[in-house]
């Protein structure tokens, strides 16, 4: 390997960038899990929807920022539809029926993408503003990747502010702790659930639009990202912001440095990590409920 410090700084930035992508995806999923007790396997499909909607918006408007704006809005609207048509009814239907319904949604979305956008992989460019490279900590690094890191940190800061400092945040935390009790205290839990679900969907859509310029937009991208996202959520512990960020950082760094230091094991590492964590801490590292 190399003893060059800048090499390790770049790899650390790579790890941070990957962690932030995971964070944007997993934070919505984990709060929906924790608050609604709802297993949304279609979360990955919503991420893919964000990427496809972003592709269309960016192509039509000729600007990346159209994708950045349209993806979270459109995906949140789809989330509203899903909530009223299915999710609300499924909340009391038990986890097995939730698995069946959201697995059905994965299948439906897969063909919606095929019919709407075709089978050929797509891509769109990063914004002009963040193209090229910048210098940071003495290394030259792709600016767009720095933007992803910054965006992830901004979302983290905003969410933690809302959760710890505002009334709605207190209500959400109360709901995660004990939703029946919160309802008894006169809180309209249904409305909070709905709001949280929509924000979670919007974040998934945003993650799709943000990841697309780095990756490619393919019909199976939602299924491919589902498992890593679930791993992040489960390792961190369900329902907590702290868990989501801890899980994201752990997976991002293990995957990046694993592929640098032990490339033969790269495919197995995150599963080994998951198994190890669950054997030692059967409810993840930072469960929201004791």
């Amino acid at each position: 390997m190399t003893a060059d410090v800048s090499f390790w700084i770049v790899q650390a930035l790579n790890a941070l960038q990957l962690s932030m992508l995971f964070f944007l995806l997993s934070v919505g999923l984990t709060v929906i899990f924790g608050l609604l007790h709802f297993v949304n396997l279609a979360h990955g499909a919503l991420y893919a929807l964000g990427a496809f909607v972003g592709f269309t918006a960016a192509t039509l408007a000729g600007s990346y920022w159209a994708a950045f704006a349209a993806a979270p809005i459109v995906v949140a609207l789809v989330g509203v539809l899903l909530y009223w048509a299915l999710i609300r009814r499924m909340r009391s239907a038990g986890p097995m029926n939730q698995v069946l319904v959201t697995f059905g949604l994965i299948f439906v979305f897969l063909d919606v993408f095929r019919i709407g956008w075709g089978d050929i992989a797509l891509g769109f460019a990063e914004p002009e503003l963040f193209s090229g490279r910048s210098e940071l900590l003495g290394v030259v690094y792709p600016t767009y990747r720095l933007f992803i890191i910054g965006l992830g940190l901004a979302v983290l800061a905003a969410l933690s502010l809302v959760l710890t400092r505002t009334q709605i945040g207190a209500i959400i935390r109360a709901g995660v702790d004990n939703d029946a009790m919160a309802a008894c205290m006169g809180i309209n839990v249904e409305r909070v659930f709905f709001l949280v679900f929509c924000v979670g969907c919007a974040l998934a859509g945003l993650a799709g639009a943000v990841a697309a310029p780095v990756l490619s937009v393919t019909t199976d991208m939602g299924t491919a990202i589902l498992i890593p996202t679930l791993i992040v959520v489960v390792i961190g512990g369900l329902g907590s912001l702290k868990g989501a960020i801890a899980g994201s950082l752990l997976i991002g760094f293990v995957q990046t440095f694993g592929s640098v230091l032990a490339p033969q094991l790269a495919a197995i590492l995150i599963y080994a990590l998951l198994a190890g964590v669950l054997i030692l801490k059967p409810a993840g590292l930072f469960p929201a409920r004791g």
């Binding site: 770049v10 790899q11 790579n14 780095v214 491919a224 592929s259 495919a267």
Partner: peptide, 21 residues
């Protein structure tokens, strides 16, 4: 030379950095 996990590698950054080095 490096072989990256098939269809699960999203971020080639670590490999590209290594190749450049």
């Amino acid at each position: 030379q490096e072989f990256t996990p098939f269809q699960t590698t999203k971020d080639f950054g670590p490999y590209l950095t290594k190749a450049k080095a």
